[in-house]
Design a protein around this nucleic acid. Structure first.
Lengths: 193, 193
DNA sequence: GGTTGTTGATTGACGAGTCAATAAACATGT
DNA sequence: ACATGTTTATTGACTCGTCAATCAACAACC
């Protein structure tokens, strides 16, 4: 059974299994054994590759964040006008790969983790700073000094829609969620440009 | 030492200690013993009065929800116009007694708990329905059919501001948070009435 | 033969919930 | 007043389960 070069495969499997397990349980109260079993290995191996439970969680979080970042970057690539850019950031935030039950549940739980883990807090801060900065680049040419306020509103609204989606448990449509935020954006940009 | 009529006092002390402990830890991973000690009693007594850890948490949640409800009702009492009503609901949501670190942290954690506990989910649904209904009463006379959409946006925004406040850890000013939501409301009501 | 992959078994700690025992307050009959 | 029984308050000690982390050992590959 032991194949060489297993490490990256095992790590990826564990990250995937962690996201699934957290999504299924709806909380971080999942044991390393559960995650490992879901990934088709023993808990000892999970510890072997990640060292500790927290490291496993953080790796999962990094994975989600990376995916999200790629999605936003992809959407931004096609944007022409500043307005396009802002819309791209919002729509990227609601891309199917990010706006799905498991990922949403993970987000919610990692928000909680960030309250007690400095490493998680750092990671989350990076995401928030990136979102804010992405929004500001598009917003400043349109609304000038109001950009910061608008970006904060958009950020909070996106977060809020995400939590509500976590509770709705899949009932809340992706398109609907995205449209709600975009509608707010339209309102903010009304009259300008 | 045993005084009669201790039950309500003990229960209240436990609820208070629970909110404090959860706020301090930033998570629900607090032991019954920790809570009990903070409330000045043994863990056995906590179990005696509440039966289980989950019951203690739910009681704490109910307490927060009650306080919040009272705050909103108080604000509504002074409202004259429909517009006043909507603003009152928003401002009630940011009353100092609700918008404080401990309570915000509790909210965040109870959101997570709601993902796995039916009882918690029920409680949270009650709050959301009440908020929505309170908003709708004020909104319908002003924006008619758009009321539902506006209420959903406001609800999500309030939730989002709350989470962000949890992470900011007290840096985010209460007034600022409230103003952000009120500004969004103004935008939605612009042009009407 | 050393590196890499892998596991079952074990350890050590912790925590929820139970229980038996103690003590104060109250009630009742005398 | 006082003995007696009942309810309420309270805790220390204990049980039982769980879980993260470690370890010793084994398997495959180079």
């Amino acid at each position: 059974m032991p194949k060489l070069g297993a490490e990256p495969i095992r790590r990826a499997a564990l990250v995937k299994a962690t996201i699934e397990a957290v999504g299924a349980a709806g909380s971080l109260d999942v044991t390393v054994a559960q995650i490992a079993r879901r990934a088709g290995m023993s808990s000892a191996l999970a510890h072997h590759y990640f060292g500790s439970k927290e490291q496993i969680f953080l790796a999962a979080m990094r994975s989600i964040l990376t995916l999200y970042g790629a999605e936003v970057r992809g959407a931004l690539a096609m944007a022409q006008t500043p307005r396009d850019r802002v819309q791209a950031v919002v729509m990227g935030s609601f891309a199917p790969s990010s706006f799905r039950n498991e990922a949403i549940s993970a987000w919610l739980n990692f928000y909680v983790l960030a309250q007690s883990s400095a490493a998680a807090r750092r990671l989350l801060a990076i995401y928030q700073a990136r979102l804010r900065s992405n929004l500001l680049v598009g917003l400043r040419p349109i609304v000038g000094l109001r950009a910061e306020a608008v970006a904060d509103g958009l950020g909070a609204l996106i977060d809020g829609v995400y939590i509500r989606a976590a509770l709705a448990g899949g009932v809340l449509d992706r398109r609907q969620a995205c449209d709600l935020v975009l509608a707010h954006l339209e309102l903010e940009l009304e009259g300008v440009q």
